[in-house]
Deep mutational scan, measured.
Amino acid sequence: KELVLALYDYQEKSPREVTMKKGDILTLLNSTNKDWWKVEVNGRQGAVPAAYVKKL
């Protein structure tokens, strides 16, 4: 499985998103959308802005 690093804090704004903190390591589930990537963090799945994460 592919991992990404959170470059910034992000507070979810809808139920389809997830909150992450700078430095979090997230499991990347889907990166086909260039703006929003689906990730899993702390057992929750949701979208985060692609510009806020970097593939490891």
Rank of each mutant, 00 (worst) to 15 (best):
P15S: 12
Y8W: 11
G43R: 04
S14W: 06
Y8V: 11
E17L: 06
A51F: 09
L29W: 06
W36D: 01
V53I: 08
N42I: 04
L28F: 04
D35R: 13
V48S: 01
D24P: 00
P15Q: 10
V41T: 11
G43V: 02
K54S: 10
D35W: 15
V41P: 00
K21W: 09
G43D: 06
G23M: 03
V4M: 05
D9Q: 03
A51K: 13
W36G: 01
K34R: 12
P15M: 09
A51H: 12
S31L: 05
M20V: 10
K22Q: 09
K55W: 09
A51I: 11
N30P: 03
T32Q: 12
L26M: 14
G46Q: 03
V18T: 06
K13V: 08
A47Y: 15
L28S: 01
L28D: 00
K22C: 08
E2A: 12
P15F: 10
V18F: 15
G43F: 05
W37I: 06
A6V: 10
G23Y: 05
E2L: 13
V41D: 03
L7R: 05
D9G: 05
M20T: 02
D35V: 14
K21V: 09
A6R: 01
A50T: 06
G46S: 03
G46C: 07
K21D: 03
A51Y: 10
L7F: 03
V41Y: 12
M20S: 01
Y52C: 14
M20L: 09
K38V: 15
K54N: 05
N30F: 07
L3G: 03
T27R: 12
S31E: 15
N30G: 08
E12A: 15
D9C: 06
T32F: 10
I25S: 02
Y8I: 10
G43Q: 06
N42L: 08
V41I: 15
A51S: 13
W36Q: 02
E12P: 15
K55M: 12
L28K: 01
K22W: 04
K54G: 08
I25K: 04
Y8G: 05
K13W: 05
D9M: 04
G23R: 02
L56P: 02
K34D: 12
Y8F: 13
G46N: 01
T27P: 12
T19C: 05
A47N: 15
T27E: 10
